[in-house]
Design a protein around this nucleic acid. Structure first.
Lengths: 197, 197
DNA sequence: GTCTATATTACGATAGAC
DNA sequence: GTCTATCGTAATATAGAC
């Protein structure tokens, strides 16, 4: 979109650096000193761009949530049979997770110690709830296997998808290929177990 | 085994309190002040029982690792077809995770900031590696579906099992029933997708 | 926009009384 | 075994020069 190379920081470019450090050391384990070293500017300079450490967390989490809730507004999430919408949301969630990896990683790890973190957890529960309703509908349609509780299946499905952040690392060149393979694998492993055949 | 009601703390009983707080606030987000309030004794009294905060972490993680590696020494993990051993380890891992919930939760969340944390991560990788070998063997036996990469399947399997710590909460009375249901669900959802039929 | 210097608070850990 | 008091350090954040 705009120029790539920047000599001075914007809130966004600083955020990108900060989020990497947060994910490596954990949010609570990251000090402003750590951030200043990673960004190559002094601690006080960071305060010129953002109000403080917690604002960086808020910006990162907002970006992750925008990506996730955006999925639910896509055509594939709103039209068709519930089981197909569920499969679409599953695949897209995996994709968004990889595309916005550091931001979603941070979202998935907050513990609720601050107001920002509790807001993040509440919004994330809203997203989970909406997907849970898709599972419930698919079960009502008779499209989900009956020997696994819907609530448990929802949790395990999210557990599987979200675990991508534990090991996935973006590739350098092409932005396709491996991401699709991962999303395919997630959908296959989840639905060959979830779908009635 | 020994008496249940204690008026004074042992390292173990103090550990139980500390681990709860660690899991609620995160290890880095927990101060000795938090621990002292939760335990009902002063900060300095804690140092009478343990050398410091990091020792509490080490004790907790050691307990979690003992539980996990113990599985690999059980009969069901060493005898029979690889796919059956894998199913056994999957079920038992889910069970150990629930039985030792707070300790395993802590293990799964360390980020590697201290020596203790890096030791924990290394040991955990060893466990994962041994299970990955079971998957590879099952794939070589032709017992795993061929359209999902073995490495990816291993990661998704662990993602699913480990995600139990995100929502499972122990029940008050009977120690059976719900735990079995959860373990059953995990095995079903994982293997109806993993096993060739 | 970035820096050095510093205010202020919180943290992990220890000393020593009881 | 537990306490109060405190040490030394590291944390978040601000002030003010350039």
């Amino acid at each position: 979109m705009t120029m790539a190379k920047r000599d001075t920081y914007t809130p966004e470019s600083l955020l990108a650096v900060a989020v990497e450090v947060f994910n490596e050391r954990g949010y609570d384990g990251t000090s402003m000193e750590h951030l200043s070293r990673a960004a190559g500017i002094s601690k006080s300079s960071i305060y010129h761009h953002v109000r403080g450490k917690e604002e960086l967390l808020r910006l990162a989490i907002a970006r992750a949530l925008d990506g996730l809730f955006g999925i639910l507004e896509e055509q594939g999430a709103g039209e068709g049979r519930a089981i197909d919408r569920l499969e679409y949301v599953t695949r897209r969630t995996a994709e968004v997770l990889m595309a916005e990896l550091p931001y979603v990683t941070l979202l998935l790890r907050v513990r609720g110690n601050t107001g920002t973190e509790r807001w993040a957890m509440a919004r994330r529960r809203e997203f989970d709830q909406q997907v849970a309703e898709l599972l419930a509908q698919a079960a009502a349609d008779g499209d989900l296997r009956g020997d696994v509780d819907v609530r448990l299946a929802t949790r395990l499905l999210f557990g599987m998808i979200n675990s991508i952040v534990e090991w996935y690392r973006p590739h350098g060149g092409h932005s396709h290929g491996r991401d699709e393979d991962v999303a395919d694998g997630v959908v296959r492993m989840a639905f060959a177990g979830l779908r009635t055949t």
